[in-house]
Amino acid sequence: MKFGKVDAIKTYEVLRFKHGTIQEVKQMISEEMPLTVYLNGKEMTTMLCSPVDQKYLVIGFLISEGMVQRIEDIKEMVINEDDGLVNVEADIVEREAAQGYLRRCLTACCGRGRAGFYFANDHKTTRYIDSSAQFTASDILKSTDILLNEASATHHKTNGVHSGAIVKNGELILYSEDIGRHNIFDKLYGKCLEKNMIMDDKMLVFSGRISSEILIKVSKMGIPCVVAKSVPTTLALDLAKDLGITIVASMRRDSFCVYTHPKRIID
């Protein structure tokens, strides 16, 4: 997979204070845009995102939220980048999911006593990952190094975007970046769906931190292992244990920590 393309960047003149002096310099800034999604003529949501891969962002969002069940149900998508509008026509729309988006709903996770899901759609679309896949330590270190040091040209220019990738045998096979960390997972999911990709033998690497919301997105994608640069949150760990997902994080050049379901990680 080739990397290095720089997208969604503008140059601004700024004042920089350094070594006791102020000077005018040019700085590259990551672009951000609002994207309002209409499904069969009804406004569903407005997402703030990088103006890249909007098609996959919308596909991943609609299916992960359960509003549309299959990518085949999406019959037409028209993206108006100038106005920040996306019009989607779908044959089958889950009305209850569309109405329940972001409706708070405290439920127990996987029959456990503690609260796990906080939104109604998450409770209905999140799934347990029953995968026997295993991943080597060398592949984890290799793929993370590629993601953080080679793949994201935009981040190296601006320090202003997150990045993530689907990994198979240590190689990055799908890549996305965005100003919003949640958007990374919807974009990757959209790309996986378009390719009809099998997910239960893949790993996902991510430049940020795994929170409960991110972990839920991983579960909806059917990914058994997620690798992140930073330490996960406590709720993410609780959910990962209950949902059968391996979390690898606290990445360094030659080390990492395995937090949940460690049997998937081998030497």
Rank of each mutant, 00 (worst) to 15 (best):
K157A: 15
V218R: 01
C192W: 02
M197E: 06
N87G: 08
D145F: 12
L48D: 14
N183D: 12
D7K: 07
I22G: 09
E76D: 14
D238L: 01
C105N: 12
P232I: 05
M44D: 05
F206D: 12
I247T: 10
L35R: 01
I166V: 15
V205S: 00
Q54G: 08
T144Q: 07
S230Q: 08
K263M: 09
K142H: 14
D201R: 02
K124N: 13
V93F: 01
E31S: 08
K241P: 01
K142F: 07
Q23T: 14
H156K: 15
V205D: 04
L48C: 11
T136D: 08
P224S: 08
K241R: 11
R104I: 14
G244R: 04
Q69K: 15
K157S: 13
Q54W: 13
D145H: 15
K241D: 14
A98W: 01
F3C: 10
Q27T: 13
L193S: 03
T234C: 05
P232V: 09
P224F: 06
L85H: 08
N196D: 15
K2Q: 12
Q23N: 09
D178I: 11
I9Q: 02
I79K: 04
S30H: 05
E32R: 13
F135L: 10
L235C: 06
F119V: 13
S250E: 15
M44Y: 03
G60K: 03
Q99Y: 13
M33R: 11
D238R: 00
H19G: 10
K142M: 13
A151F: 06
K191T: 11
E43M: 13
R253K: 15
E177R: 13
G84L: 06
D186L: 15
R209K: 12
I140N: 02
M251A: 14
I29P: 00
K2M: 10
K263W: 04
R16W: 04
